[in-house]
Structure formats: structure tokens, C-alpha cells
Amino acid sequence: MTERKPNLFERVGATTFDLFHNTFYAFGFFWNVLGETFRFRSRSRVSTQVLVMQILFTGVNALFIITLIAVSLGTVIIFYGNQITTLVSTNFVYTILITVITRELGPLLTAFIVMARSGVAIATEISSMVVTHEIEAYLAVGINPISYLVVPRFLGVTLSMVALNLYFNLSGLAASYLVAQFFHPIPANEYFGQLMTQLTPTAVASSVVKSLAFGFVISMVSTLNGFRAQQSTTEIPIIVIRAVGQGFALLIVVNILITLVFPR
């Protein structure tokens, strides 16, 4: 006897139910992670070792690629900005630098790099651990996987995001100054002084809030998807692809929302 295929209404109903179920599950997961984060200090020193390793991988090991992209972005802005400012006003290039590097592309590009490196690594690692029953082994010895695996990754990715965003800003703005010397030599104190006049508290707050929010999104999306693996290694690439897709989409949405909250 062949099994009856569900009709359109049943499929829509099942998809809607799954969507609600997954959303509630995700909120429960975030709540659990936040609760365990507040208890992190009272936990064992071994969790701190995991945190240090995560900062090393997400933050320190990403410095080269961050430098490369920040310098490229700073160079491109000053190259085109130099042409535009001749038509508009001299100060306009500083506005562009702060808007693009500090407020918008700095945090977003840093987040994309962290998602592509650390998000993928975390989703792969956690899903492999589920499939090989390593997560159950943590439970069996009384170690809460949220506390031992997720919280250090959440803190490590978020702290690294803030630090990398700051580093991206410094590298991009310094690179733009060096490139500017080829087109329109300008004293360092004048260049950075002009930048500081454009660097409003709102711009700084927007950049910091974005890097914090992006760190949260990357760590949550990658760990949550990692835990969705069940029993087969063939699920792992599917989970990783889903995590990356969701991660990039959420980063873009969150970026837009924060930009709207912090107007110029």
C-alpha cells in the first residue's frame, strides 16, 4: 500500500507549525544561553580555556584578512572620494569615510568575515559532536553543553567582533590617510582632526551596537543550527549551508534595523 501524499493545505499547515515550533525553540535556546552567560564566572576554569581558544581563532587568526579588506576599502574610498571632493566639498570625504568605514561597511564586512570563518567552524564542530554522541557524553558527565560549549563561543565571538570592528576602523582609516598622501598630501593632525569632527557619539554607538549584535547573531545562528543535527554526517554540510544563509540574511536585516535606530 502506498502512503498518501499530503495535500497543499496540509503542507502549508505543517510548514507553518514547523516555523512556529522552530521560532519558539530558538527563543528558548537564546534565553538559556543568556542565563548560562550570567553564571559563566561561577563556572569552572575549563570554560575560560574554551573562551580563550575561541577569541584566538575568531579574533587573532582573522587579523590578516581583516587588514586586507579594511586597507582595500580605505584605499577605494579615498581614491574615489578624492575625485568627488573636487566637485562637492573638501570635508565630504571625511563624512564618507566615517559613514562607510565606521557606521556601515566596517561592522558588516567584519561580521561577514567572522560568519564565514568562525560561524562555519562552530556549526560544523557542534553538528559533528551531535552526530558522534559527544554532546551526550558531556551530558553524561554532568557538563551542560550550553554552559561549556555555547557560552564561551558566544562570548568569544561577540568580544572578537567588537575588537575586530575597532581594528577594521583603525586599519581602514589609517590606510586611507596613507593613500591620500599620493593625491593630496595633508598633515596627519589635520586629516585625523577632520575625521574626529565627523566621528559623532551616534556614529560610535551605532558601530559598537552593531558589532555586539552581529556577534550575538553569528554565535547563536551557528550553535543553534549545529545542535539541529541528528544522526548522520551527511546532515553536516546541509546544516552549515543553512547556518551561513540564515547568518548572512540576519546580519543584513539587523544592520538595517540598527542603522534606522541610529540616524545621522
Binding site: V46, A140, V141, G142, I143
Partner: peptide, 29 residues
């Protein structure tokens, strides 16, 4: 959980830890 121990069918050792760390972790945690 600290009053019980579990031996898994596939051993389920933590792949990114050494033998020593696998045995040590429950104690130090």
C-alpha cells in the same frame, strides 16, 4: 549525574581532546 557514569557504544570520546583530557575533564569541571 556525578553519581553515575556512562560508557557509550561508540565510546563517544571528545575528538578534539587527548586521552588524558577526556578522562580529566569531568573531574576538573
Amino acid at each position: 549525574r556525578q553519581r553515575s557514569g556512562f560508557v557509550f557504544q561508540n565510546a563517544a570520546l571528545w575528538a578534539n581532546k587527548s586521552v588524558w583530557q577526556n578522562i580529566e575533564l569531568p573531574l576538573v569541571f
